[in-house]
């Protein structure tokens, strides 16, 4: 149920993907309205992560079309897709553990600094080079400035999750796909993450959030898309979707609903 007045940041139509004959995604279509937070939910194995993998280009699609901010990215090499403004996180955090926080963020800037000149600038020799300054400022903005020079691998889980978000922001992402961002966080870390996501939406960033924690979904996302066995079975505001008999059936035997 997309508001006709809001243009789509991400538009998926007729998407299908099979793995060795197993149909993981079946003729899936949905829209993610610009500047809003939308949730993608469904039981384990429903195909949520696969949708992210198809949109980011980790896998090629079998059928269908993926449009990001008006650009058809279906056949685009995965490396180029970030230029359309789309970025993602992974279910298990994929920061570079041996690097410092700052270095991880610098990798995030790559899409805006990939010329030969930029590649060969000895930024580490230049005190307060603008790349480092920008990264430090982005950290300071969310109160994580103290971690800038720490090795990522040694940081608390909740902090790493948010550094992952900062990295995507620095990549210039306007559409962010987050795979279970709240999983494994304690209540205070969850609150910090929620505030962070709300701040991003306030800045105009579009979110597509895969999440099992329905309280979290309820507090962050305006609408949800429900997947089951690779098919869309419902969409709309969470309050409405929860009453849907098909959704209730999909979740039978699980406690995901509450």
């Amino acid at each position: 149920m997309t508001d006709a007045a809001t243009p789509s940041a991400l538009s998926i139509s007729g998407l299908s993907k099979s793995f060795a004959g197993v149909r993981a995604i079946r003729d899936l279509s949905f829209e993610v309205p610009k500047g809003r937070a939308t949730a993608l939910i469904g039981p384990n194995g429903a195909g949520k992560t696969t949708v992210f993998n198809l949109v980011s280009g980790v896998y090629g699609v079998d059928h269908g079309r993926i449009v990001v901010n008006g650009t058809d990215v279906t056949g685009m090499p995965s490396r180029r897709r970030i230029t359309t403004g789309i970025a993602r996180s992974f279910q298990n955090i994929r920061l570079m553990p041996h690097l410092s926080v700052l270095e991880n963020l610098l990798v995030g800037q790559q899409v805006r600094a990939s010329s030969l000149g930029a590649l060969l600038t000895p930024y580490r020799l230049i005190p307060n080079h603008r790349w480092k300054r920008e990264a430090r400022e982005a950290l300071a903005e969310i109160g994580l400035a103290a971690y800038a020079d720490e090795t990522v691998g040694a940081l608390p889980y909740g902090v790493r999750k948010r550094i992952d978000l900062v990295r995507a922001t620095l990549a210039g992402a306007t559409v962010l796909m987050l795979d279970e961002p709240a999983a494994g966080l304690n209540p205070s870390e969850t609150n910090a993450l929620r505030d962070h996501l709300k701040a991003l939406v306030a800045q105009g960033v579009t979110l597509l959030v895969v999440e099992h924690d329905m309280h979290f979904v309820d507090s962050v996302c305006e609408s949800v898309v429900v997947l089951n066995f690779g098919e869309k079975i419902a969409e709309g505001p969470l309050s409405q979707v929860r009453k849907d008999p098909k959704v209730r059936e999909a979740y039978i035997g699980t406690d995901e609903e509450d």
């Binding site: 490396r79 180029r80 897709r81 970030i82 993602r88 690097l99 790559q110 990295r167």
Partner: peptide
């Protein structure tokens, strides 16, 4: 001291993520 070295480390550390970030 350059971004080239940073990119090499990124590729070594996680090629998929490096690729998705535009490396």
């Amino acid at each position: 001291r350059t971004r080239f070295a940073l990119c090499l480390t990124a590729v070594k550390s996680d090629a998929t993520v490096a690729d998705l970030l535009g490396v």
